[in-house]
Design a protein around this nucleic acid. Sequence first.
DNA 1: TGAGTAGATGCGCATATTTGCATATAATCA
DNA 2: TGATTATATGCAAATATGCGCATCTACTCA
Lengths: 102, 102
Amino acid sequence: MEQHELLAELFTALGHANRLKILAFLRDGERCQCELPEAMKLEQSNISRHVKILVSAGILRSRKDGTRTMLRVANPVILDLLDDTEKIALDGLKTRIKAFVP
Amino acid sequence: MEQHELLAELFTALGHANRLKILAFLRDGERCQCELPEAMKLEQSNISRHVKILVSAGILRSRKDGTRTMLRVANPVILDLLDDTEKIALDGLKTRIKAFVP
DNA sequence: TGAGTAGATGCGCATATTTGCATATAATCA
DNA sequence: TGATTATATGCAAATATGCGCATCTACTCA
């Protein structure tokens, strides 16, 4: 695959609020997937699919423990990336607001 | 809007190979939008829409100069973000390959 | 003013994504 | 073994996205 395609895939995987919420939930370390539906007030199958997308994008790692699936962020640098992007998002927002309210 | 939604919007805007190519083209500074169709071998209306998405996500800034639209990356930090993410993408790829070819 | 250039947009089509529901699979434990 | 728990998946519907073509608008310049 091409360089930009690869990168776009990663960004696409990050481009959904529910998936970002899952990442936020896993910020402090490994957690059971079974906690997510309750914690996020989302349907179980919905969670399952979002988790699948994150895992196959290499953003999450999953590990089986009996019937449970334990999840963690694959690489702590990803969390830094989220923080950086959040800063950029807020910056951009401020700038765009300023353009209307000078 | 909610925090995660805002962030997701930004990631979604970055989640397309053609849009990343536009950003790559603008890496060294301001350029005319009119160069893009030729440079990227893409249809004019296609470019126009991708540019619109990037501008309204706050990733690009546009400036009119006669009939031309001059484009630039809104914030240089965005380019760093792309580089960082590229590293993460390649890292993740290596790791996933290693899992198959230990 | 009229031709030319740059850009935006309506339309239609194809494909992709997200979701809930119901159901299937798989591991655990009484 | 049979019930329970955790997770995955088929299906169908709704919505979103990406694209090319044709067309429209706006600015420039001869």
